[in-house]
Design a binder for these strands. Structure first.
Length: 381
DNA sequence: GCTGGACGTTGTGGCTCATAGTAAA
DNA sequence: CTTTACTATGAGCCACAACGTCCAG
């Protein structure tokens, strides 16, 4: 632990040293602090200009943007250091964490594309407990994304956990797991204040800012919550996938999903691993969005959909709990599982006695079956 | 629809080896 | 606290008869 403290202190010192040069201005307007990086444009942008630039046509919406690295302020951040709440590019991450044999908890970050609304940006950046209203007015009362989007809720470890927790009114939290602190995944890095400030400005520009209809619309009704200007919206890793290929599959079916690299699909393969469950809970519980723009088969999503999800991907995808749709499915799945558990046979079951009899008389070499002529030849010798 | 041949798949048990977990030094 | 020794567990291997499917006659 002391090593961790020293590590943190070193980082703080390092940040303080770099602070003066970290304020880069937006390449577009030249006024605001640049917080995002667009690789396709090789440009550092503020949130307002990012919206302006990337909403002009569909092609631009495909550009993936990242937060700027908190250390060098010149490269896209691909690592979130949860310990020090900073976002770092690969080089800076290597420099700072490798040098010091860091014990920091780090996660991969990916960018976002499309034209996310302020609310969605809040969610992407880990301010899910801060609705757009709170952002605008600092108000209370209204509920925002946090009520519907749950980041990294403790995943269900097994179906037994579900059953053990059966009485909790479909609360998917596994037993024995302490509640997580809010906002623990805030992925905004060091420039939190500046980000909030820019988002505040951005939200004022949105047509329905302050409208009651807006933020009270839960995430599960994404279909009615079109991103600004109907731009295709995709969050990669950081936020949530909003995609037409999000098949609704009951997560508690007792199914493991295996990735088919060639088709880019999951296939049901029996009982689920906890890892797959985590993913299913999020990926599959999201409502379908019949967007022709984001069509998995053809539209601009191959990059994401045809790569097998890594453990990091699983870790990064936030948990979105669909409270209505899943309750019935869960109940039926649990009852099916219970029924199956009753009739489960642990002892070995011989299906073909004749094969057993045959196997017992077979010639063996070190336990392995040997060819018949081996016995013959040994007899002859 | 029935028959028979060809061909691919499945299941069987004992042993070895790798791995994880535990206890002792 | 670390290292070593021991134990438990499970996957994989092997050959081949039985089984299942397909197809032509």
């Amino acid at each position: 632990m002391t090593e961790l403290k020293k590590d943190q202190e070193n980082h703080q010192q390092q940040e303080q040293e770099q602070e003066p040069q970290s304020q880069h201005l937006c390449d577009f307007c030249g006024n605001n602090t640049a917080l995002l990086y667009c690789r396709a444009d090789s440009a550092k942008l503020c949130f307002t200009c990012d919206r302006e630039v990337h909403s002009t046509n569909r092609l631009f919406t495909k550009h993936t943007r990242w937060l700027l690295c908190n250390l060098c302020d010149s490269s896209p951040a691909s690592i979130l250091c949860c310990t020090e709440s900073s976002v770092l590019c690969q080089n800076c991450d290597w420099e700072s964490h490798n040098k010091q044999l860091s014990l920091h908890e780090r996660r991969p970050l990916e960018g976002f594309s499309g034209c996310p609304s302020v609310s969605e940006l809040l969610s992407i950046l880990g301010f899910e407990d801060l609705g757009k209203k709170e952002l605008l007015y600092g108000g209370d009362g209204s509920y925002g994304f946090s009520d519907w989007v749950i980041w990294d809720t403790p995943s269900v470890v097994s179906l037994d956990d579900l059953i053990a927790n059966n009485d909790s009114e479909h609360n998917f939290q596994a037993i024995g797991v302490p509640p997580l602190p809010k906002n623990r995944n805030a992925a905004c890095g060091k420039h939190k204040e500046e980000i909030l400030s820019q988002l505040r400005e951005l939200s004022k520009l949105e047509p329905n800012s302050g409208d009651d209809q807006d933020e009270t619309v839960p995430t599960i009704r994404f279909q009615s919550m079109e991103p600004v200007q109907n731009c295709p919206l995709r969050f990669k890793g950081l936020g949530f996938m909003q995609n037409s290929d999000q098949h609704v599959v009951p997560s508690s079916e007792g199914s493991a999903f295996h990735w088919h690299g060639d088709t880019g699909e999951f296939a049901d393969q029996g009982f689920s691993s906890s890892l797959a469950d985590c993913f299913i809970e999020t990926k599959c519980l999201l409502p379908d969005r019949d967007s022709d723009v984001c069509d998995a088969s053809g539209g601009g999503n191959e990059e994401q959909s045809h790569h097998p999800p890594t453990a990091e991907t699983f870790q990064m995808v936030p948990k979105v709990v669909h409270r209505e749709l899943n309750s019935q499915e869960r109940e039926t799945a649990v009852s099916r599982y219970k029924e199956k558990k009753k009739t489960r046979r642990y002892e070995k079951h011989i299906r073909y006695e004749s094969r057993k009899a045959r196997a017992e008389t077979r010639t063996r070499i070190k336990g392995r079956f040997a060819k018949m002529d081996y016995r013959d030849s040994s007899v002859h010798q």
